[in-house]
Structure formats: C-alpha cells, structure tokens
Design a protein around this nucleic acid. Sequence first.
DNA 1: AGAGATTTGTACGTATGTATG
DNA 2: TCATACATACGTACAAATCTC
Lengths: 142, 142
Amino acid sequence: VIDPDSGWPAWRQLADQLRGRILGGELQPGQALPSEERLRQETGLSRNTIRRAILTLRAEGLLLVDPPRGTFVRQPEEVTTVDVSAGTVSARMPTPDERREFSVPEGTPVLVVDHGGGQTSTYPADRVALRVTPGDPPENAS
Amino acid sequence: VIDPDSGWPAWRQLADQLRGRILGGELQPGQALPSEERLRQETGLSRNTIRRAILTLRAEGLLLVDPPRGTFVRQPEEVTTVDVSAGTVSARMPTPDERREFSVPEGTPVLVVDHGGGQTSTYPADRVALRVTPGDPPENAS
DNA sequence: AGAGATTTGTACGTATGTATG
DNA sequence: TCATACATACGTACAAATCTC
C-alpha cells in the first residue's frame, strides 16, 4: 500500500503506516514488529528503505530493538513523580553520556530542572514526571 | 581518524567526533558542516555511512539540514518562559502532526503540562521553558 | 552438542531526482 | 548552463547473536 507516485518518500509512508498501527492499538506494546524480511515481502521495498522507516520510529520513541530477537513496540514505563516547587523546567535530547548515565532509551528526552545557582537535576522523561507543587519539597537527583 | 578495528561502528565514531567538535565549539552554531562529499574524502567512508552519522546527530537535535544548501549546527532558539503553578510536567518526542502544529524541528521534544481534568498544554522544548512558581498564574497554550 | 535458519547491524556501491548557487 | 549538495532507493555482502531442530 505504498504509492511511489504519492509525492511522499516510501520510507515515510511505511513509517506512517506502522505508527498508525501502533497508535491505533493494532500493534500492542511489547509486541514484535514483523521482521525486516517480512516487511520487505509485504511492501516490495528494499531492506534499506524498511530500516529507514524503523529508524525514524525508533527516534520517535515508539520502537525498541533487541537484536537479533526483534523490534518491539515500546512499553510505557512506570512513572515516578518528582515534586518540584521552584525552578525552571526544560527538556532536550540527552547526550550519549547522559543516555548511559541515566539509562535513557532511544527516542527519549530528558527533563532538566534548573534550581538556580548552577544547580540542575536531570531525569529520564520516560520514567519521571514532575509535579508542580505550591509548597516547598525535598529533592533527589543529579 | 576512524578505526575499523576499534569495536565501534564507523558511523558512531564519526558521529562522536562531529558531536565533540560541536560541543567543543570548533563548529559554531549556525555554521555549516563539511559536505557529505567532503566528509567522505576526509574519512574514507561511504556516503551512506556519513549520512548515518549525520542522521544520528539530527535525532539528537544538534544539526538541522536545509537541502541542498547544507547541514548546519543548530542555533539555540530564543526561549519563552511560561509560568506554571500547578500540574504535572512530562516530556516526549512529538508526533509528526504535533511537529507540524507547533513547528517542532527534528530532535526536539515537547513539554506537556497536565493541568488535571484532561486539560493539557503542549510546548516545543526548544523555545519554551517552564518556570515553577509558588503563586497562581495565567495560562496560554493548546 | 551441533548445524542451520532467522534477524538485526554494519558497510559498501550505484543511480537518479531536485533545489541551490 | 553547470557544478554542488542533500534525498531517495535500489542492490550486495558479511558479521554477530539468537533460536530451532
């Protein structure tokens, strides 16, 4: 169902279709995607093009790869809520160092809380949410 | 300076080197990266491998591409500060729809504020930071 | 234990299209 | 007009880890 004349790149059409099947619930969290070879047969695209689409969805945080077992729909992680009563919150993609340090998977941002005075806390955004509280709370992070 | 026997993929070594030159200030924001052909000559790698490295840095939010003018080191955007006095803040990668709606560039997360009662606000994380305030403030976002 | 199939990763090459300068 | 530079897309080959028989 990929149309080369649609004006959209084939890899993008495939990524859109797979994303739709994931967000639509047809492909459930934890479930394996069809293998690259299977997708190649189904779509008629080259393996490179298949991989380009999958790479995109990995960067979007929708897929995780466990080679050579397969490619899987991301499971939502258990979210820890951290209280914040003052400071500035921003988000960005982590550096590779930060990805190792905080075990941040592909396609996952980090939340950065600037407490002022050069004091910041960094959290993996797939496992941490920040609760904004009017009171004054404790803190725990690096 | 790419070593095929280092145990690391060539594209990753190149990405690491380019990232280092960007974070180290050798490649300044707004500055153009060497062209793919130039990098090919300098490294001896194939163009596919060069592009794999650049794609990685794009997903990290370090590079923006303006084809076929060139590939450029991302400029920090002007940051608008939005006050938040209550709610839960999280971050994730935007869907393609959200990227269009909020003009979110590649490799940039969105900040999502859950005000409770199904009310959420979404902001592009490269242009918005959230100030956590003890008071009670106004709100403006979709 | 071992052989073979499966699946993802890496890396190469080639060709063509399109927009810019 | 021509060269440059990024995008798309095809193909091939081999490696490494896992799974199955």
